[in-house]
Every structure is written in structure tokens, then in C-alpha cells.
Design a protein around this nucleic acid. Structure first.
Lengths: 211, 211
DNA sequence: TAGATTGTTAATCGATTAACAATC
DNA sequence: TAGATTGTTAATCGATTAACAATC
């Protein structure tokens, strides 16, 4: 098909690669490049050029033979495909060491993401601000999520509280959960969960360095 | 093949799932279960039972029909397959906010991993200890890695320093790099890199919550 | 024994890669 | 025009799923 509209459904591997393309495209734009070719991007990312071409084609911006893809339009299309063109707010549950680190992470604004509120059950933390975000009692989660129509929850609670907190996020109206706990969450089909599990990548590393 | 020996090469998806199985197996062992079935593990992890059976079979521990796999032997085999049965030391490069968070993370010992030293170029940090690990000047990296035969490097430096620091790790003798920077590293084939890139999982979440 | 569960072989599926046509 | 690059269709590959035999 030769339509210009981006596809409704994209392969998950493609979506996961989009942020990688995006960084390279931004670098090239900063250098003044008006067009970028799939070959150049593939080379920088260590991908097969055909794979890059397919990925880019799915963004819906037609490229021009001999010139490549218009860099600004391609950037915009990829940003749009991964929903980074309009700002998102997230709530964070669990202000332990990891939660605090995420609250202090300054890089999220690059993805148009900000953490609008943090919640915890620890009375000694409530009311205290970490990196400018005040910790609130978990009881206020529902009203905060609903009042601001928030759709994303970041889960950095202890393992024992993970499923219970996920349930609360879901019943509050959250659609996506960024799960930093090692707990396998049980959620309805309509909820998207992305697990960030260091053990999984470490397994690959420790296996290879031991042989 | 019906040999007992674990395979030399395992599919990467299988290796990535091993830590997940491991957690469930440990839980079941803690409950006193002497045997675990692939069906139970699959159910807990939301996987197809056949997939679990294949994954477990590759660990090399034969299961018994009607009973399942002997839990302790299976645990040991998986731990061995991912190299978690003997302790690893890693060096960490870049003691910024993320580096400090990782230094303070107490969960690595579960994977038999410890961070033996941290390096930075910032003179105000050198000599200072973070969570019990003293920051050393980058010049000492080589001798420390070689003296202790270290194989794993954790990269938490600023983007601009990432490739240069990776090069130093490699020339010091490191075999695996846990790359927490968003830089696409160029390394020899013999070096294993695992990228931890929050943008990639966020892309999936932000895409789904915007439609 | 009967039946649950493992183990194995074949089929399916999706993603990647290859081949080649289209086009600026 | 010639040729580099995109776009598309077909082939390959690897992982997952299905079907069924083996076994305690």
C-alpha cells in the first residue's frame, strides 16, 4: 500500500526501535541535514538497512529516491507514532530509593513526560518533597488520577505491595503501568504493562561473561 | 536429544525468561514444594505451557511425568545457566544520579553481583564514598580491572563520554557492558552489550495510552 | 491401571532478510 | 541519463504454538 497515513498497528519491535532512530535523526537535524537515508540510520544503529527502511516506511512519511526521508517530517511522524507529541503526566507509587531516583531523573522531559505526583504509605515521607515532587498519601491517588485524567502509572513499590498498588492504579483509571518491580502483574487485557527488570538483561551478560 | 547436559547455546528469549522462572521457583521452594510443573510456572508468568516446558527442558534437568521438575535441581540448573552460581564483580563508570542509585541498590546480591569499584573524572567526587563504594579516578580503571580479572562494566556516564568509556572498559579486559546510556555503542564482536533504555519501553506505553 | 505431565516432532506465526522493481 | 535510494513482494529464519507420543 502506498498511502501516507501511518498504520494503526505497528510491530512492537518497530515501536521499541523508534526512540533509537529518533535520537539519530535529531543529531542529523542538528547538523543541518534536511534528509536522512535509511542506510545511514541503519549503519549508526547496527541494523539491517532493509529493516530500517521498513520501520521508517511504517511511520507514513514517503522518502525520496536518491535523497532519503525529509528529516523534520520523519522526526515528527515518529514522535507522533510513539505518542511523544503531546505531553503526558504520570503518577509514581513508592518513593523508595528507585522511586526517588526516577523523580530526580531529568531526562523524561525529552519524551514529553513529567511525574505529576508521588504516593507512598510511609507517614514519614508524606508531605516531604523529593526533587520538587511532594509525596502524598495513597488515599489521594484516585482523586488525583481522575481529576487530571492521568493514564500512566510508575510502580516502584516493594514487591509485596506491587499487585495491590497495580489494582489501585487500574481502578483509578490508569491505562499503562511502567512496572519497575520484579512482580508479574495480573491485569485486564485493556491495561498495558511494561516491565523494567534488570535481572533479565543481567542474565544475558552474566551468562556470556562466565563462558 | 535426551541428554542431561544443558545446551551450549540457548535462545536469548529463553535466557531473558530464566530470571522470571527463577523467582517463581524460589517462591514455591519456600513453600516447601519439592517439585514444580511447567504448567504452574507458565500460569504464574502468563506464558504458554509448552513454551515453559521447552525453556525448562533446555536447563537440562529431566522432569518426571505427573510430578514435574525437581525444584531444587531445576533452580540450580537455571542459576547455573545464567551464570549466577558464582559471584561476579562489576565496575561502575560515572557516579551521577543514576550511578549513585545503582551503587545504592541492594538487590544485586540476589544475582550474586557486587560492584567492586566506581570511577569518575569529577575531582569533587573522587575519594568520596557512595553507599560504601569509594570513587576512584578513571586512570585507575585499567589496573583495577586487570588486578581483579573483572569482566563486567556498568556504564552510567554522560552521553558524550559513553563511547570513550566503553573503549576504556574493553581495552582493560571487560567482556560485558551494561549500558545505561542512550548511546549506541560500537564494540568488537567478542564484547556483549546490554542496553537499558527506558525510552524504548516508554515508547510502547505512551503509544498505547494515546489511542 | 488411568491419567497427568513431560518430551518431541511438526505446524504456525511474525519478524527479518533477500531480491528486485519503481522513481527521483 | 545513470545511479542511488525507496518501496514492495517473496524467501528465510527463529521463536512460538500445536499435536501427539512417552512415561512415571
Amino acid at each position: 500500500m502506498s498511502e501516507n497515513t501511518p498504520h494503526r498497528s505497528l510491530p512492537l519491535p518497530t515501536i521499541r526501535r523508534y526512540p533509537l532512530y529518533l535520537r539519530e535523526i535529531k543529531t542529523l537535524i542538528a547538523r543541518g541535514e534536511t534528509h536522512v537515508s535509511s542506510a545511514v540510520l541503519a549503519e549508526k544503529l547496527g541494523l539491517d538497512p532493509v529493516l530500517a527502511r521498513k520501520d521508517l516506511a511504517m511511520a507514513g512519511v514517503p522518502g525520496k529516491p536518491r535523497r532519503g526521508y525529509p528529516s523534520h517530517a520523519l522526526e515528527a511522524a515518529i514522535v507522533h507514532a510513539i505518542g511523544w507529541d503531546n505531553p503526558h503526566c504520570a503518577v509514581l507509587l513508592g518513593v523508595g530509593s528507585l522511586g526517588q531516583a526516577l523523580l530526580g531523573y531529568t531526562g523524561f522531559h525529552e519524551y514529553n513526560l513529567s511525574i505529576s505526583a508521588a504516593f507512598d504509605t510511609d507517614a514519614t515521607k508524606i508531605g516531604h518533597a523529593f526533587h520538587g515532587v511532594t509525596v502524598r498519601p495513597l488515599e489521594e491517588l484516585d482523586s488525583h488520577v481522575q481529576k487530571n485524567s492521568l493514564k500512566l502509572g510508575i510502580l516502584t513499590v516493594p514487591q509485596t505491595a506491587a499487585q495491590e498498588c497495580a489494582n489501585r492504579l487500574i481502578s483509578a483509571g490508569i491505562l499503562g503501568i511502567w512496572n519497575f518491580t520484579p512482580v508479574q502483574l495480573t491485569v485486564p487485557e485493556t491495561i498495558t504493562v511494561q516491565n523494567v527488570d534488570l535481572a533479565q538483561s543481567l542474565a544475558i551478560l552474566s551468562r556470556t561473561i562466565t563462558r
